[in-house]
Amino acid sequence: MRPLSIVVRTICNIFAWFVAIFGAYVILHGHLTPGGGFQGGAIVATFIALLLVAHGGKSFLGWVKKEIFSSFEGAGLVAFVCVGFLGLSTTFLYNFLALKGGLFGSAVPIGPNAGVLNSSGTIALANIAVGLEVVGGLSAILIFMFLGMRYVSEGGKEGVKDDK
């Protein structure tokens, strides 16, 4: 697949980074604002899709290896299970950090408030872990299907015509 025109590539180089930063914001503020790990991960995967479509597969896969996304995915899932096991003194996935002070441990005022970033215990940690997993998983699906598209069109039974 050839890269798109210079206009598309320039605009993408500028605005794709805003998409990535917005996705990171949605993941990190998952316990305060609407959003969370899944939604923010999907937004960051949109960043990967933008780069992949605008610059073409050859140059994109020259920048990053596709194994790194699989490792992100595995690391996210293992981190989520570890957060679950850390609370095993009470139950699996027990929120052992909330309202204890320290990391993510401060209390929030009851009722509508402006939000305390250092609150909610393991919910923030699980958000980050799941966000990492969704980023890796959706990007890996995109890249594998992109590579498989070439593989299907080359080896099709009737020789599908590749329109350059």
């Binding site: 998952g30 939000g115 215990g121």
Partner: peptide
């Protein structure tokens, strides 16, 4: 109980 402002996230992850 959980010091979470976002009730949906507290259900999903806790």
């Amino acid at each position: 109980e959980r010091a979470a402002n976002n009730v949906v996230t507290s259900i999903v992850f806790d």
